[in-house]
């Protein structure tokens, strides 16, 4: 961290500050003051994030037997979890879904941001259109796409038929269903990521492009040598958000496929949701939660490193 707190550490000459707060803050010193500021957030984080994690961990290690109050501690839930083909299937699906969703959404968002960065009326209209799906509830989007994907009659087949294509069962073909969900997700999220790229682009000084142009650099070269490196922080940020999205959003699976056909669209969180709420196997669900939390942590540690590096870059 390059910066340190500076002036704020000097003694205050407060005027209208409530005396008690001032005195408390003064007595606490810099560390105490920081904790005081964090306190409101920490209270809610403890209640609704940390404590539930402890509960889930305990649940994952608790082995229950049907019809008996007695429980024991152990790794039995994890053994059962890894022996469950549905779990490994969901894990694999989620991987495909992540790669399949994140790469095109980000590429598309980036292309759209670069293409629409100039503030013309036309561009403003196009940005609005691309951003609209972000504003739609995922449940509602899924309800719409139920019709979009309807074989033969739905939006997609109706217009593809005018191009001479035949009927396709977008959600009912196990080889296609996951990719249909990928399509929905890209449609829903690309506009959101585009906004962050637009913000990042706005921060790049125009004279850099001028200089490059004078040196005779073409458009592609300018993009790879200036735009892309300077968008590093935005890219890292979007990557984190996108990673979180592919693991934590499953409303569309609930509405459209319920993980089918034959488990082809079963994603990790949906697996957890079903195991807990339909099979009441809270031990196995908790074990799966622990696994997915571990994956998320590992992923986010890596991407946060990149993020912090990007922020440094931006600050320098």
């Amino acid at each position: 961290m390059a910066q340190t707190a500076l002036a704020v550490d000097s003694p205050e000459h407060g005027t209208a500050a409530p005396r008690r707060v001032r005195r408390l803050a003064g007595r606490l010193g810099a560390d105490g003051r920081a904790w005081l500021l964090l306190l409101p957030s920490l209270v809610f984080l403890c209640l609704f994030t940390y404590w539930p994690i402890v509960q889930v961990l305990l649940q994952a290690l608790t082995i229950e037997t049907f019809g008996s109050q007695a429980t024991s501690l152990g790794l039995g839930n994890f053994d059962r979890l890894f022996a469950d083909a549905a779990f490994t299937g969901a894990l694999l699906n989620n991987l495909v879904y992540a790669v399949g969703t994140i790469a095109p959404s980000i590429a598309l968002a980036l292309a759209l941001a670069v293409g629409l960065q100039e503030a013309t009326r036309f561009n403003a209209l196009l940005r609005t259109v691309v951003f609209f799906p972000v504003l739609l509830p995922l449940v509602a989007a899924a309800a719409l796409f139920l019709f979009v994907f309807l074989p033969g009659i739905g939006l997609l087949d109706y217009y593809l038929a005018t191009l001479g294509a035949g009927q396709t069962n977008w959600l009912g073909d196990p080889d296609l269903a996951l990719w249909s969900l990928v399509g929905l997700t890209v449609w829903k999220n690309a506009g959101y990521y585009m906004l962050f790229f637009l913000a990042g682009l706005q921060a790049i000084p125009l004279d850099l492009y001028e200089a490059a142009r004078i040196e005779g650099a073409g458009a592609w070269r300018r993009f790879t040598r200036i735009t892309l490196p300077l968008l590093g922080p935005s890219l890292a940020f979007v990557l984190v958000i996108a990673l979180v999205n592919v693991i934590t959003q499953v409303d569309h699976v609930v509405v459209l496929t319920e993980g089918g056909p034959s488990g082809a669209t079963d994603l990790l969180l949906f697996y957890i949701y079903q195991t807990a709420h339909e099979s009441y196997d809270y031990g196995k669900a908790a074990a799966a939660t622990v696994v997915s939390v571990a994956i998320l942590l590992a992923l986010s540690l890596v991407s946060l490193r990149t993020l912090e590096r990007g922020v440094h870059y931006e600050a320098s």
Binding site: L150, P151, I153, N169, G172, D173, P174, P261
Partner: peptide
């Protein structure tokens, strides 16, 4: 019969159509 999975809504819509 289609060799792909059709859900209840798709079935009733196809019957109407």
């Amino acid at each position: 019969m289609p060799a792909a999975i059709t859900d209840g809504k798709a079935v009733s819509t196809a019957f109407f159509a």
